[in-house]
Design a binder for these strands. Sequence first.
DNA 1: CTCGCACCTCAACCTTCGTTGAGGTCAAGC
DNA 2: GCTTGACCTCAACGAAGGTTGAGGTGCGAG
Lengths: 156, 156
Amino acid sequence: MTTEEELFRDWSVGQVAERSGLSVSALHFYEREGLISSTRNEGNQRRFGRAILRRLAFVRAAQAVGIPLADVRAALDSLPQQRTPREDDWSVLAEGWRDLLDARIELLERLRDDLTTCIGCGCLSFERCKLVNPADRLAVEGPGARRLLPGSPRPE
Amino acid sequence: MTTEEELFRDWSVGQVAERSGLSVSALHFYEREGLISSTRNEGNQRRFGRAILRRLAFVRAAQAVGIPLADVRAALDSLPQQRTPREDDWSVLAEGWRDLLDARIELLERLRDDLTTCIGCGCLSFERCKLVNPADRLAVEGPGARRLLPGSPRPE
DNA sequence: CTCGCACCTCAACCTTCGTTGAGGTCAAGC
DNA sequence: GCTTGACCTCAACGAAGGTTGAGGTGCGAG
């Protein structure tokens, strides 16, 4: 019994906040947004299972890379809903994100090189410059908070 | 004369917008925010010199990497105000940003590797996990739109 | 039993990065 | 001389990602 309690005891928001490094209000927000979910105890307080930390780690990683929460949610939606995701469930996700990170890294490397050879060089041919008019537009998208993902072309 | 006119003719916002790929409203906004500046003609219309495109290229590059405009402005403030920045003015800037991009790239690479070996692995030791509790906190900062730059520790 | 802390909800607010729109000016072409 | 298009200003709105605060409940310790 004690063992079972140890293994299956759920955590309160406060505990999850502390362990994840996120604030309670952020956890509330993530739940509202469907990134995480919780059960409630008798007193209507949130209880989170161990799996929550893994989800949150994923969310944090994505955040750090500038991926919008909506996309993160979409990714997480591919995880099984009503059982604890297993190792292989996660590795499918991780693989997809590896590619995304690879792409992102490549983008940054290209940017760095262009910056050095184009902006730093004193060239005046901006209209042919890769940075200003890249083949694959680095264009920032519509209004609101910018996302770093390559996306649809600018409106206009 | 004609040559001089060719060389020193300034551009209207519309022209700059077209050449830079930015919208007119964004240019207005950038001017309000002090990222760019313009002179005015007799009819109070903005006129931009050639140097504007270089500034804008820089802004766009920074944007693409997720650097907040306030930081971009700070960087641009190091350029000479009342003469056209020369090659060496820019290369100082470019060098600083090379370092920043290098750091960013390293961050992403580390993240990718951690993601594969930690989230993807099925390990349960989240409290020791580099991704969740990295030595150098990947912590997301305070309120508002998140920035990707490493910054001050969370409030709380 | 009551203090105090952690929890709950809901609404309002905040920042960043712009866009949209209303109301007005200027210059060129028909 | 009138219209058309590019420009001007200023204010309001909008999305993303949360924080803050008011008002109320739950629970363990003394």
